[in-house]
Design a protein around this nucleic acid. Structure first.
Lengths: 333, 333
DNA sequence: TATATTTGTGCAAACGAATGCACTAAATCC
DNA sequence: GGATTTAGTGCATTCGTTTGCACAAATATA
């Protein structure tokens, strides 16, 4: 079964009593082969269902026309979207895409990278461990582009979201709707994305000449559960804002649910990440889209440039605020 | 930059004044090489950061240790989950996974398949067009496993969900909760999955000795919009069921939103597919999980068996009902 | 001591396709 | 009609590894 002798250029050549080189040239449309021969050869190749062996072809050319993507978990919506963007761009450029998941394990990541580097022209990766040493990345003998979770330990270009601007735009939107008492639910500040987002929030508020009392800002892990707690705190101290800007969709979701549970009107609210659930919950949640697909595009473009020997610089993607019912004043009346 | 002369077995051999074959054997741990030499060679390889060229290796061995997955769209939650399952199993078996999206275009699918078949040992695919001719699949010269959307035109094994049982179990669950007037929102019957699900619904109802009037069943495209329309119909004719079994999560979502919009109590409701949004909407939607991850596992296992020359039969995955607030009687009171 | 065996190594031929170079025959030129 | 160009084809090498076979030196056996 598996033994099924695959048809090669050589076998076609033998059947036609010509040299393999002639077949190769004919199939590749070289004009130094007569039309008659070319037609004849292509016909037989078609009939035999000949498929060129990419391994041989790539070995000869030295280019594998394949890149690898390493992510913690494929099924996470954001990563799936990035992968989609990568595949999109890569296939347009004639590259195949190998995917691998690190499961957030540094050792797995390491094993993958070294195995893959003999098989691909370059790697796009979102790093597993946050704090582990990523030295081995530098031993990689093919170009590397990192995205989303990036590390400065690594001697490789990166593509990231402009978290600051995303947050600022979102806050600005709430201000534009006429809200002023806008609170902020955010993550712990030592993680850069949450720091940046808070800075964006503050910048927008300050530009409007608003002073932010400490109790307008709620810090904690940006989970649904925590969002509920934050809301409960506000309700308990009878201090409900006009609007909320949240550094994550889940924390926003938690807050929304808590207000609803207690039978209170939900303040205007904007999340961050634009998870698919944003448009199905009630009210539909405005959120900052991280453009996973574009991020994938960009990362892939950078990688292919690197493969082609060009010099490439770090890129920052401008995220986009998706406005839905949750933050529109008329809807909140 | 790119020219960076890659270290090969030959270059290591030259530096050490030995034959390439010796290096190859040493690196592969052949015991016919003296310990001393082996140590020496491995050391240098390590130092030079040598990575075997998989192209050459695979060309020689005839095995590519790579499979391809072709899906309509990577970012769709179900497909991402299946891919995750495939990657999981494949990597454990030493295979790499190439992904490609057909974008639901038959021509793209065709192009992908023929290009990939020279590069991989086998293909797992969810078909693009439902009705188009899939003849070219049969021309594929590597094993093929189809999943989810399958076609009998194709001479290849498939792995599917037991839609009938999934639907029956879901309906049974509603019956167990004490509901009797259970309506069914379903898709058009010429598509097998929707036919099967309706049959499952009917079977459960019949086993309870219930007769199903025609107006208990609503047929149409299983979209959110259509779900809303169905609910509106019920409300208009003042004929609200105790419970609803829906053949899809989106159609269920549409119905839920419509009831809520009109200020009515939402009947007990169960969806199908277990989309991620099920657990974040209010009420959290009970649904039938299609076990994408297991489906991926299974498909991959079948494919590798095929590659190994074993005979393989079609498989059916038993889906699992995930019970949430939307269908629990006490919660609905 | 001569023969047989083991141990360690090298040589050379694959794998399938691409390609520079050489070669033959026909066509064109002067 | 001989010289030169051109078209069409084949030969042989290359890409990096693996592997069967040969072969030498070292060791064991008779």
């Amino acid at each position: 079964m598996v033994k099924k002798q695959n048809i090669s250029i050589a076998s076609i050549a033998k059947q036609l009593q010509v040299a393999p080189s002639t077949v190769s040239r004919a199939l590749n449309g070289s004009k130094s082969i007569s039309e008659e021969r070319t037609r004849q050869i292509k016909e037989l190749a078609q009939k035999l269902n000949y498929v060129p062996n990419q391994m041989a072809r790539n070995l000869k050319s030295g280019r594998r026309n394949t890149i690898a993507v390493v992510v913690p978990l494929i099924s996470r919506s954001f990563f799936a979207t990035v992968i989609e963007g990568i595949e999109d761009y890569a296939s347009a450029k004639g590259y195949d895409v190998i995917i691998a998941q690190s499961k957030n394990l540094v050792e797995t990541e390491q094993r993958l990278m070294s195995k893959l580097s003999g098989k691909v022209d370059g790697v796009i990766a979102s790093l597993a461990g946050q704090d582990a040493s990523h030295e081995y990345y530098n031993a990689l003998n093919v170009p590397l582009v990192q995205f989303d979770r990036t590390s400065t330990d690594i001697n490789a270009v990166s593509v990231r979201i402009n978290d600051f601007m995303g947050a600022k735009t979102a806050t600005q939107h709430l201000l534009d709707q006429g809200f002023r008492r806008i609170y902020h639910l955010c993550g712990l500040q030592y993680v850069s994305i949450w720091y940046d987002r808070q800075q964006g929030y503050l910048a927008a508020m300050h530009e409007h000449g608003l002073r932010i009392p400490g109790q307008w800002i709620f810090q904690g892990a940006p989970t649904e559960e925590r969002g509920g707690e934050f809301a409960r705190d506000m309700i308990a101290r009878n201090d409900i804002p006009e609007a909320l800007f949240c550094s994550g969709d889940y924390v926003a979701l938690g807050a929304i649910k808590e207000f609803q549970k207690q039978g209170l009107a939900v303040p205007a609210i904007v999340g961050f990440a634009n998870e698919p659930f944003c448009e199905v919950i009630e009210p539909a949640l405005s959120s900052v889209d991280q453009f996973g697909s574009i991020m994938g595009h960009t990362a892939c473009e950078m990688l292919i440039d690197l493969i082609d020997g060009k010099t490439v610089e770090n890129k920052v993607i401008e995220p986009k605020l998706i406005i839905r019912k949750s933050s529109i004043r008329s809807e909140k009346q």
